[in-house]
Design a protein around this nucleic acid. Structure first.
Lengths: 202, 202
DNA sequence: CAATAAACGGACCGCCCGGTCAACTTGCTA
DNA sequence: TAGCAAGTTGACCGGGCGGTCCGTTTATTG
């Protein structure tokens, strides 16, 4: 059923990689409306080459998003398998996510490159990993019971968001807000939450 | 020193108001790149009229931002004067801010309409109000001591941000995340925070 | 009810964007 | 090393944007 896709030519792989890197940098610096022309220039290729590799700007965005979510998911799986303390594992996962986003804030791409089924697939996988991290944390009473995996997913990027309002934020400032939010997740003295949790995000 | 500015003509005031409202709606629906032409159409005026009232798109944005921050500041002042419990007052203020943003999310305008001195002025005033709310909360031991006013400013919009990732979020979902974050602000069992607080934001 | 300045409207300008295409170059393979 | 498909390139296109300008309309005022 699956077609036999001829392997890419050597220069093509090189260009594809350069393009992906240049696009990530350019988006991080200029935001969502970084232009294809600038990305091409930064990668040292012609504009046409961009569209040969990624039929549309949204496809390019999707490819970047997939790369990043895959990396994050891998980190989560590793923690799930290796970390001894479930609470520490969850916090470590949130730290890794924050660190990734601190280096290059590409959060706005999430919203843009959404339609593709590949994005949906890798996101579902990552959500599942987070669910399991939270379940383990529940089991060892590190996180209040009425907080769900989806809650954690939603809160995940909040520390970076908070920091984004500080003009020249020190690179570790997010740790401060992760600490506050994580404190809000503890079981001790928690009153019941005022609204039912949302169901899994598509 | 101050010039005598002739009072605006009756139709001009009407149009200005309509423009501001239409722009707020349009930005809320379409995001930052809502077009001036669409805003004009929605307000029922010509495109030229927009630029008569607001010399540039950024000026229009600044006017909207000023309106909203003024309203929020007024609410804060009122709470400061009238509310009996300082902890409740702070939480109520955060609720009002969240509610405002829930109705129309215009947060992205903050970042855009920044340069104007009027924006800076009204923002400074609002920051000061929040500082006083937090100080009072400290005094009545409703909020942990190592959390500053600037911290609260930064955390203020996080509940809405968190919710923004849920496709068809129920309109009150933000309350859930405000509760979690507010719990992280309580003095009980708080460990010292891992990073010094940022200084006031310009 | 004139007269007049203020306000309005929309055709118009230049710019830049995402995307296309046909001529050209280059890595692969037999 | 010859031949060719795969890959590259940049000029080019249509469209939408912010902003300008001037002929027309309208609120105001004496």
């Amino acid at each position: 059923m699956t077609e036999t896709p001829r392997p890419l030519r050597a220069d093509a792989v090189r260009n594809r990689r350069a393009l992906l890197a240049a696009a990530a940098d350019e988006f991080a610096e200029r935001g969502l409306d970084a232009s294809i022309a600038d990305i091409a220039r930064r990668a040292g290729v012609g504009k046409g080459t961009v569209f040969r590799h990624f039929a549309t700007k949204d496809d390019l965005i999707a490819a970047i998003v997939i790369d990043r979510m895959d990396a994050l998911n891998a980190a989560g799986e590793r923690l799930l398998a290796e970390a001894p303390d479930a609470g520490v594992a969850l916090r470590e996962f949130l730290s890794i996510a924050a660190e990734q986003r601190q280096q290059r804030d590409l959060s706005f791409l999430q919203q843009a490159g959404d339609l593709s089924p590949e994005v949906t697939a890798v996101r579902t996988r990552m959500y599942d990993t987070i669910d399991r991290l939270v379940e383990k944390a529940h089991a060892s009473n590190a996180v209040r019971r009425d907080v769900t995996g989806t809650d954690v997913i939603l809160l995940m990027c909040a520390p970076n968001y908070v920091v984004s309002y500080v003009p020249d934020a020190p690179p570790d400032l997010w740790r401060r807000y992760l600490a506050i939010i994580f404190d809000g997740l503890r079981p001790e003295g928690a009153q019941p939450l005022p609204h039912p949790p949302p169901t899994a995000t598509a």
